[in-house]
């Protein structure tokens, strides 16, 4: 973590320098008639620089701290087991239905608990397609839980596509673990 912060800090410093120099610059195109007519002065402001990210100074603490607010990550519930899918599928296997029946029973017994269902894919396939596929898995999971008597308004969904693999690795064992729907209590 500490190391990461230093890296961050350097990056920000470098950016700041870039910004300052970038803003200061006004490439004044001086039309100088060079000896041969076709010589033209750059029509474009060559030096214009890109405004980098937010100029606010960021403290080390802020940087190193993982901002989880946006990730929709509640605590993963040990009581709610994930379910798994076949490649490019979002239909629920008998085993998944069994797991979901257990999960539904748990949720019915804790009527105050709200759950975020995350749909995930393995790394194969295109990212955008997998985002849509992950959503279908989450949606199928939610619909099944609802059919088992869990109030739909307690269930929300999100797709992470292939962005949050449970297990790294490019093999069928890892793929199988990553094609899943997970439950987070919010």
């Amino acid at each position: 973590m500490k190391k990461l912060s230093i890296v961050h800090l350097t990056l920000f410093l470098a950016l700041a320098v870039l910004l300052v120099s970038g803003c200061a610059k006004k490439p004044a195109p001086t039309p100088t008639a060079a000896s041969e007519t076709p010589v033209v002065v750059s029509e474009r402001p060559v030096g214009q620089d890109v405004r980098g990210i937010d100029e606010r100074p960021v403290t080390e603490g802020q940087i190193s701290e993982q901002d989880t607010a946006g990730l929709g990550m509640g605590q993963a519930s040990a009581d709610l087991q994930p379910i798994f899918f076949e490649f490019d599928q979002y239909t629920l296997s008998p085993q998944a239905r069994q797991t979901l029946a257990d999960n539904a029973a748990f949720l019915r017994s804790r009527s105050t608990v709200n759950v975020l269902i995350e749909g995930h894919c393995d790394e194969r396939g295109s990212d955008e397609y997998n985002l849509a596929l992950g959503e279908r898995r989450a949606r199928a999971t939610r619909d099944y839980l609802a059919s088992l008597g869990v109030a739909p308004e307690r269930l929300s969904i999100i797709s992470y596509g292939e962005e949050r693999p449970l297990e790294q690795g490019s093999n069928e064992a890892a793929y199988a673990k990553n094609r899943r729907a997970e439950f987070r209590i919010r």
Binding site: K25, A28, V40, S42, V46, G47
Partner: peptide, 21 residues
């Protein structure tokens, strides 16, 4: 004969952009 010529004015750190241009 000269096919094209350009004069670029900027900062030292713009050298690469000028060359791309």
């Amino acid at each position: 004969r000269l096919l094209t010529g350009r004069r670029y004015l900027g900062k030292v750190e713009d050298a690469r952009r000028m060359a791309h241009s």
